[in-house]
Design a protein around this nucleic acid. Structure first.
Length: 570
RNA sequence: GAUUCGUUAGCUCAGCUGGUAGAGCACAUCCCUUUUAAGGAUGGGGUCCAGGGUUCGAACCCCUGACGAAUCACCA
C-alpha cells in the first residue's frame, strides 16, 4: 500500500479542511443523542414521528434542491430525505448547498434529526430537519449495489482484502455480519444450556509451563521475570480436570487454543474449543447430553434444527445414531478388527489400498482404516464410539474390552466436531500412559506428548471422581451452522502474512535514471538510439529509466521521419 | 510442502497474435424538489504486484520472488 494519496483521497482531505473553515468540526467529541435505529424506525413506524438517528451515508442521490440518501447503522439502512428549504429555513443555504452537497461523501458518519414520512413510491423515510457531521471518511469505500432480484454489482469480493480489511467487509457486505451474529448466538446458547444445567464457567491459564491435553506443536514464549519458557495452550483439558478434583460438579470453558501447525481452510493457528467436564457421569450420559445440546444450539442460531452445508441437509435433532468403530469398519469394509494383531491389521489396510508404514501400531492402523474408509460417509450427526486404547492417553479403558476406550467422536458431514471420554481417573494408569507417550515421542512420533505433567498426576492421586468430558470445535460447528466451507469466514481476523506498507517513493532519480539524465543533460538533445547505447543499460532498465524521466517531465521523446529524438525539458 | 489459478483506476473487471492503457460504478464540474443497482451532460484519475531476461518495442512471452485462493499432503 502506498502512502501516495489517490485523487479521491486528496479531494476528501480538501473537503475536511473546508468543513473546518466553515467552523464545523469533522470529528466532534460530544455524544450524539441517537434514539432510534433503522430497524426500530421500520418496526415502529408512525407518520410524523420525530427521530434522531446516526450512521454512515451509503448512497446519495441529489435531485437539485432535494436529495435522497441511505443511512446505514448497525441494524441496516434507512432512507433519509434532504430538502434545501427545510434544512435552511432562512436565506443562508450553506448547510444544504455546501455542507451536504459538496462536503459530505459516501462513508461519512452523520447524525440526523428528522420526522418520519413515506415517499410517493412507498419508502419509509426520515425527512431531515437538521444534521451533524459525526466523522469524515478520508478513504472511499467500495460500493456494492444490489438490484431487486438480489444481483450484486461491483461486489467487494477479493478474499485477501476482505480478511485484511474486515472493517470494510463488514461495512459493505451485510451477510458477513450475519455470520458473526450467529456465531455470538451459538456461544450464548451453549452458555445458557450449561448454566441451566448448573455447570460453572471458568477460566484457566493460557500461558502454561507444560503444554498438555492434546498432541500438537505449541507456540513458545519466554517469561522475563521468571526466566522460564512458557507455552500458549494447545488445550485446557488438564486444568479443567484439576477443578473437578477440587470439587466442582461441572466446569466448562470456551478456550482459545494455539497450535503451531499448518494453515488451510479448516485450520487457523488460534481457534476456539469448548470443553466441559461433568463429575459422576460417563460417556453414555455425555452422548445424551451432547445431542440435546446441539439441537438446542442449532435452533437458537437458525430457528430450526436443520442446517444446510454445501449440498448436504443436516438435521441436528436428537437422538443421533451411535456406531462403534468396529461396527463402522465392518459396515464399510466387511473387515472385523476385533482381536486382530498388528501384522494382520497392516496387511488388511494394505489390501484396502491404504498407505501404511512400519511405525504404525494397532491403534494407528485402525484409525487409518476408519479415516480412509468410514469417516467420510457420516453426513448426519453420528456418534462413533469405542476407540482403540493407543490413540487416547487421557481416556478410561472400556468397561467390557481392555483394548478399547470409552470414547466417542461426533461426526457431521464426514468431519469430527466433538470428542468425548469417560475420563481416566486412575492415577497409576495415567502415569503409565504418559510414560508410554514419552517413549513414543522419543522414538520420533511427533503426535505423542513430550512432557509429563506431574502436578496433574498429583491432582489425580488426591482423587478425581468418575467424570465425563466433552470438547467441541466451535469454529467448525459455526461453519456448519452458517454454511461456510472456510474457517476464515467465521473468524473476524483470520491469521495472514503481514502486509508490507511501502514507503513513499522518493522523488530522487534512481541510478539508471541518473545515468540517462546525466548524458542528456550535457547534450540537451540527441537521437534515442545513440543515447541508449551511451547509457549502456539493459533493454529493460533503459526502458524503465526513459519512461520514468518522461513521467517526471525531465525529458521528452519526439518522432520525426521515423527517427526518435530525446530532448531535455528546460 | 506440491500443483494450478490469480494480482491492471477507490471497487468490480476487459485488454485478441507483443505495437502509446479500457468499461461500469465511484470521483469532479454544470442542470434537476420524491429517487429505488443505474436522471442528463462533460471531465479527471494508472509504479498494469516486484525484480531480472527476450525484443526495435512487454500489462501480454521467459525466469526469480511476494501475496492470495483452490486442490492435494500434513493435522486429536
Amino acid at each position: 500500500m502506498s502512502l501516495q494519496l489517490s485523487e479521491q483521497e486528496i479531494i476528501r482531505r480538501e473537503k475536511l479542511a473546508k468543513l473546518r473553515g466553515l467552523g464545523i468540526n469533522p470529528y466532534p467529541a460530544d455524544l450524539y443523542p441517537v434514539n432510534h435505529t433503522s430497524k426500530e424506525i421500520r418496526e415502529g413506524y408512525e407518520e410524523g414521528k420525530k427521530v434522531i438517528v446516526a450512521g454512515r451515508l451509503m448512497a446519495i442521490n441529489i435531485q437539485g434542491k432535494a436529495s435522497f440518501a441511505q443511512l446505514q447503522d448497525s441494524e441496516g439502512r434507512i432512507q433519509v430525505y434532504f430538502n434545501r428549504d427545510v434544512i435552511c429555513e432562512g436565506e443562508d443555504k450553506t448547510m444544504y448547498n455546501v455542507v451536504f452537497k459538496k462536503l459530505l461523501d459516501l462513508g461519512d458518519f452523520v447524525g440526523i434529526e428528522g420526522e418520519l414520512f413515506t415517499t410517493k413510491v412507498g419508502e419509509m423515510s426520515v425527512r431531515v430537519l437538521g444534521f451533524k457531521v459525526l466523522s469524515k471518511a478520508l478513504r472511499p469505500l467500495p460500493l456494492p449495489k444490489t438490484d431487486k432480484e438480489g444481483n450484486v454489482y461491483d461486489g467487494f469480493t477479493d478474499p485477501e482484502m476482505r480478511y485484511r480489511q474486515r472493517y470494510v467487509d463488514l461495512t459493505v457486505n451485510p451477510k458477513v455480519k450475519d455470520v458473526f451474529v450467529k456465531r455470538s448466538k451459538l456461544f450464548t446458547a451453549m452458555r445458557n444450556f450449561f448454566n441451566e444445567a448448573g455447570y460453572f464457567e471458568v477460566e484457566t491459564p493460557i500461558l502454561q509451563p507444560i503444554p498438555g491435553g492434546a498432541a500438537a506443536r505449541p507456540f513458545v514464549t519466554h517469561h522475563n521475570s521468571l526466566n522460564i519458557p512458557l507455552y500458549m495452550r494447545i488445550a485446557n483439558e488438564l486444568y479443567l480436570k484439576r477443578l473437578i478434583v477440587g470439587g466442582f460438579d461441572g466446569v466448562y470453558e470456551f478456550s482459545k487454543n494455539f497450535r503451531n501447525e499448518g494453515m488451510d481452510r479448516t485450520h487457523n493457528p488460534e481457534f476456539t474449543a469448548m470443553e466441559i467436564y461433568v463429575a459422576y457421569k460417563d460417556y453414555n450420559w455425555m452422548m445424551d447430553f451432547t445431542e440435546k445440546l446441539l439441537e438446542h444450539c442449532a435452533i437458537a442460531v437458525n430457528g430450526t434444527s436443520e442446517a444446510t452445508f454445501d449440498e448436504h441437509k443436516i438435521n441436528f435433532k436428537a437422538p443421533y445414531k451411535r456406531v462403534t468403530m468396529r461396527q463402522s469398519i465392518i459396515d464399510f469394509t466387511g473387515y472385523d478388527i476385533k482381536g486382530q494383531t498388528e501384522e494382520q491389521l497392516r496387511a488388511a489396510a494394505k489390501g484396502m489400498n491404504i498407505e501404511v508404514d512400519e511405525t504404525m501400531g494397532v491403534g494407528k492402523l485402525i484409525d487409518e482404516i476408519f479415516g480412509e474408509k468410514c469417516e467420510g460417509n457420516y453426513i448426519q450427526p453420528t456418534f462413533i464410539t469405542d476407540y482403540p486404547k493407543e490413540m487416547s492417553p487421557l481416556c478410561k479403558e472400556h468397561r467390557e474390552d481392555a483394548s478399547l476406550t470409552e470414547r466417542f467422536e461426533l461426526m457431521v458431514c464426514g468431519k469430527e466436531i466433538a470428542n468425548a471420554y469417560s475420563e481416566l481417573n486412575d492415577p497409576i494408569d495415567q502415569r503409565e500412559r504418559f510414560e508410554a507417550q514419552l517413549e513414543l515421542a522419543k522414538k520420533g512420533d511427533d503426535e505423542a506428548g513430550e512432557f509429563i505433567d506431574n502436578d496433574f498426576l498429583r491432582a489425580l492421586e488426591y482423587g478425581m471422581p468418575p467424570t465425563s468430558g466433552l470438547g467441541i470445535g466451535m469454529d467448525r460447528l459455526i461453519m456448519y451452522l452458517t454454511n461456510n466451507p472456510s474457517i476464515q469466514e467465521v473468524l473476524f481476523f483470520p491469521q495472514m502474512k503481514p502486509e508490507t506498507f511501502e514507503k513513499k517513493k522518493s522523488l530522487e532519480l534512481n541510478d539508471n535514471e541518473k545515468v540517462i539524465f546525466d548524458i542528456i543533460s550535457k547534450e540537451k538533445s540527441m537521437e534515442l538510439t545513440t543515447l541508449k547505447e551511451q547509457a549502456g543499460l539493459s533493454n529493460k532498465q533503459w526502458d524503465k529509466g526513459i519512461k520514468a524521466l518522461g513521467k517526471l517531465e525531465l525529458t521528452k521523446v519526439t518522432k520525426a521521419n521515423d527517427i526518435l529524438t530525446v530532448d531535455l525539458v528546460e
